[in-house]
Design a protein around this nucleic acid. Structure first.
Lengths: 269, 269
DNA sequence: GCAAAAGTGTTAGACGTACACCCATGG
DNA sequence: CCATGGGTGTACGTCTAACACTTTTGC
């Protein structure tokens, strides 16, 4: 395909792929602690035939990295996340043992509880809890570990929590989710006060009647409060897209023609 | 990167390159504020012939991304930084207008004042202050902006400051550097107390006699206090390399008291 | 009424900030 | 002896962890 070459395969120029880690909050079952969940796809070809792997695919030359990640995700898992962010790029030669060198640009996506609930069960796609993963193909376990590490250590919670919780929510749900992410106990009373004082939430007016105790007020995140707060960044040229993550960045180029189709696709969902 | 051949068709599979942003503290000149500095190389071929650009080159199939970044850096600028970290991967098709699609994995490097001072002036390489950059080739301005943004917003200072300051240092130097990074005034007295209380510094015993006032004590960072503290992360398989950043952070780092105290120590005021 | 969760109050300490102050030195 | 930066003291506001407490519901 690219320039007839007599050299070995491992000296070919590296191929580029896009891989995604999709995270969600495990649906509530009874009253146990809720964990983090992620979907894996079963491989249908060699190598690692039959093993579980992260959704991914090759990078198309006419697509941005983010577009490729989004499209690959949608086609393999039917998920259309509103939050997508570049994680890390893996390119060590040892990851493709003997094969063509492969550089994988990895993204992570966050989806809310509601979106997960609406999913049709799909052949060759299955969800696993973060502490109960099967053996993964390639170095995908490393990638998952990094996504979880980043979720817990480097990410600023409000933005992430917002994506994972799904609206509307009770303060207790938000609290449980934050505990799941942080992996530690958080005083409910103080958490409630902090969140309310932050000004990020607004009451929907509704109440949640579950169980036999006092109903809890429902909240949502206020529009715009998480935009342009300096915690996120997007390369110039991507501003046209309306994934939630995208905030401000050095604003210049408006939506490029090449991007407009995706732009509308993302907008109407 | 920058080996793109403009005559190729834009539907070829994307090429992969590695690009680096090298940051250092501008040498003291008189008593003005010190700024951040970075080296640029003048392009010797089309496109953007004669313009300034970031050092970079193609990814070799038998090298890891980090190795490639390091080697490219060393060969173009003679710098051998002890700190190298992946920044972001740029892959938008519009970045190579008309040329072959190019994916650039960007790294940043931090070098101490001493290392900069030892450099031989080199043809086609020149240092520029962060607030006085010339027009850059490709989208390299975006990359530099991101590096600076990340330096100021997302990076935990201690590790970064350590690389940039060079040892030994006076508390005032450390203070000046932190102000340069943060871009705002920081109370010297409180800064001093926080740094000393953090337990990350140790006195060398020496003093610095510059100017006509009381000599300042010299410090260095204590060994090990910044290792494996959960703030950094390295993909498995890279642990063998000897760059400073590389510690060994399999994703299960427990409590990091030393780190959090230091992070707050450096970040606030 | 009772259990369970929603929601409120209160306190003690940790920590950041501002700024006044003393100390050591070279000129 | 004084200008300059090195280095210390201190008082005050803010944030937060800890936990006791009241309220509202279903059964």
């Amino acid at each position: 395909m690219n320039r007839g070459n007599v050299s070995e395969r491992r000296c070919d120029p590296p191929q580029v792929g896009v891989t995604s880690v999709i995270l969600a909050l495990e649906p509530a079952r009874g009253h146990g602690r809720r964990r983090l969940w992620l979907p894996l796809v079963r491989r249908v070809r060699e190598p690692f035939l039959g093993q579980w792997a992260l959704p991914g695919g090759p990078l198309r030359a006419d697509r941005s990295l983010e577009q490729s990640a989004y499209e690959t995700l949608a086609s393999t898992t039917d998920l259309r996340p509103r939050y997508l962010e570049q994680l890390y790029t893996f390119g060590d030669p040892v990851r493709s043992r003997g094969g063509v060198p492969m550089v994988s640009v990895c993204y992570w996506a966050l989806v809310g509880q509601a979106d997960v609930a609406q999913l049709e069960p799909r052949h060759n796609v299955q969800w696993f809890a973060d502490d109960d993963l099967p053996p993964l193909a390639f170095d995908h376990r490393t990638i998952v570990d990094y996504a979880l590490w980043r979720l817990r250590h480097r990410m600023d919670s409000p933005r992430v929590v917002r994506q994972l919780v799904g609206e509307p929510f009770t303060l207790r749900q938000l609290h449980a989710l934050t505990e799941a992410i942080r992996g530690e106990r958080i005083d409910v009373a103080n958490y409630r006060r902090r969140m309310l004082a932050s000004g990020l939430l607004e009451e929907t007016g509704g109440v949640s009647r579950e169980g036999r105790q006092r109903p809890a007020a429902l909240y949502r995140f206020r529009q715009g409060t998480l935009d342009d707060d300096g915690t996120s960044w997007v390369p110039a040229g991507c501003e046209g897209e309306r994934l939630e993550r995208i905030s401000a960045a050095p604003a210049n180029a408006p939506a490029d023609d090449a991007l407009s189709s995706l732009t509308t696709a993302l907008l109407h969902d």
